[in-house]
Design a protein around this nucleic acid. Structure first.
Length: 446
RNA sequence: GGCCCUAUCGUCUAAUGGUUAGGACACGGCCUUCUCAAGGCUGUAAUCCGGGUUCGACUCCCGGUAGGGUCGCCA
């Protein structure tokens, strides 16, 4: 059977900054396309700019891709491939497609001699898989620089040589590269190669609608990880920036996206990265977590004082699950003014705050608290759970009015006007502490 | 400014000549409820403008306008 050429795509970042959403989304699309075609996905570090490239940023790219679950089949680093580029530069010079040019340096670091590509000055057209036919007149590009010296090639040259050498079939990259494409096609032609298929995806935009970049405060993937976002949420959300499935189901695993993805459903216009929706996705994925997974992933965000109190910590987990839309929100909940601040310490409150707004009677509040206290007291220590606490009080509360009983109790236990229900609050605190706090409240009312 | 790309609710988007222009996030209301969330129901909200083509345009064409990208010995 005549097999079609195996799809090869790549992600080719320059290690000059922390890996952020803009780069990630490009990598994601190239990865998805390769995987759905059973093709090859290559990571290529473009570090020809020695001044700005660092190992630290390279590591950050690699770690981020790993965290987000994008695996690559081959890895290259351009600084390891100087000899290959040298060969091509020589070939281009020999064939008359490039020449050594004498220059008048304009800036510090400029060379007096560089290698320029001899522009044939013609019209170049290509069919972009997303945008259709794009045509340029390359005349205005002039004879552009392809190397600072025989050992120091720059972007256009290395990019083309590598894409050719690595057998790239599809170049899936950001729209900001559209205007580089004619130059690169010219180089492909000069080395006697057929240009690959291009697909320029729209850019990710910041709130001001300009290209998301490090300088504009783009948030790095590492920071999202540090803030406790789940990689599945990031992947899912970013895949939906510029692409949309045929139906309306948006919560999708990477596997599902790979199955459903098509380039012709990719948007042409840029998309603003909206953290609110990311939060929503994160919540969706948190709610799918098993209790064990939730516990272990939340662990890094639990304050130290609570970690040493494993009994209370375990009792808090259930509540955490329903309060949090990303793990990074956990520490704040346990701060003094957070909803779970009462776990560490009773917040100070005034006697008025114990009174239910619909029946602000001190006598009623005191009587109900007293009854609640007795009910809790009667529960055996080893069955002091949210469930049993509720059972012991519920009937009484329904008789006297739930607000009349529950509000003062919750306030007595937490001292907060926003908090979990009194049953869970008492459960977290434990019998002894709960009774102590109720007693303290009763003193305030007398 | 030259060249290139783009244009549907605030945001992400669906609808590839015929829909009451659909969904999601956010926002508002209601329900639930001792509070706050969550959850359920529900509401407000969009085809940039002007010309064509057509029986009929979000959809096709042209012109504006607006936004973006790019014009490096960065990638």
């Amino acid at each position: 059977m005549d097999e079609q050429k195996k799809v090869v795509t790549r992600f080719a970042p320059s290690p000059t900054g922390l890996f952020h959403a803009g780069s990630y989304r490009t990598a994601l699309f190239a990865y998805i396309f390769a995987r759905q075609n059973n093709g090859k996905f290559i990571l290529r570090i473009e570090d020809t700019d020695k001044m700005r490239s660092t190992k630290e940023y390279e590591d950050n790219i690699i770690e981020s891709l790993k965290w987000l679950g994008l695996s690559y089949d081959e890895f290259y680093r351009q600084s390891d491939r100087t000899e290959i580029y040298k060969k091509y530069i020589k070939k281009l010079i020999d064939s008359g497609h490039a020449y050594v040019s004498e220059e008048t340096p304009k800036e510090a670091g400029d060379r007096a001699e560089v290698i320029r590509f001899k522009n044939p000055n013609k019209k170049v057209a290509f069919d972009d898989l997303i945008r259709g036919k794009i045509e340029f007149d390359t005349t205005e590009l002039g004879d552009f620089v392809i190397a600072k010296s025989i050992d120091e090639p720059v972007f256009h040259l290395v990019n083309v040589v590598d894409d050719y050498e690595m057998g790239m079939t599809h170049i899936i990259r950001g729209e900001d590269h559209i205007s580089n494409t004619p130059r690169q096609i010219l180089i492909f032609e000069a080395i006697g190669a057929k240009p690959p298929i291009y697909a320029h995806i729209p850019l990710l935009l910041g709130k001001d609608r300009s290209k998301l970049s490090k300088r504009k405060g783009a948030i790095s993937m590492t920071e999202y990880r540090n803030r406790g976002f789940l990689p599945e949420a990031l992947v899912n959300y970013m895949a939906l920036l510029g692409w949309h499935p045929a139906d309306d189901i948006e919560v999708l695993s990477l596997e599902q996206i790979i199955k459903d993805f098509t380039l012709d459903r990719v948007q042409k216009a840029g998309a603003i990265f909206d953290e609110e929706k990311l939060q929503w996705f994160d919540r969706q994925y948190i709610s799918k977590l098993s209790d064990n997974d939730f516990h272990s992933k939340a662990s890094a965000f639990i304050p130290e004082w609570l970690k040493t109190d494993s009994v209370r910590l375990n009792r808090c987990i259930v509540l955490l699950r329903e309060k949090v839309s990303s793990f990074g929100e956990i520490p704040k909940l346990f701060e003094a003014d957070g909803e779970l601040g009462f776990v560490k310490e009773l917040k100070s409150y005034t006697p008025d705050m114990l009174l239910w707004k619909k029946n602000p009677s001190k006598e009623a509040a005191a009587a109900n608290l007293k009854q609640a206290s007795e009910s809790l007291e009667a529960i055996p220590d080893d069955s002091f759970t949210a469930e049993s606490i509720k059972n012991s009080i519920w009937k009484y509360a329904e008789e006297k009015g739930k607000g009349d009983v529950l509000w003062p109790l919750r306030m007595a236990l937490t001292g907060q006007d926003k908090s979990p229900d009194p049953f869970n609050s008492a459960f977290i605190l434990g019998k002894v502490e709960s009774l102590t706090r109720i007693k303290y409240a009763l003193e305030k009312l007398s």
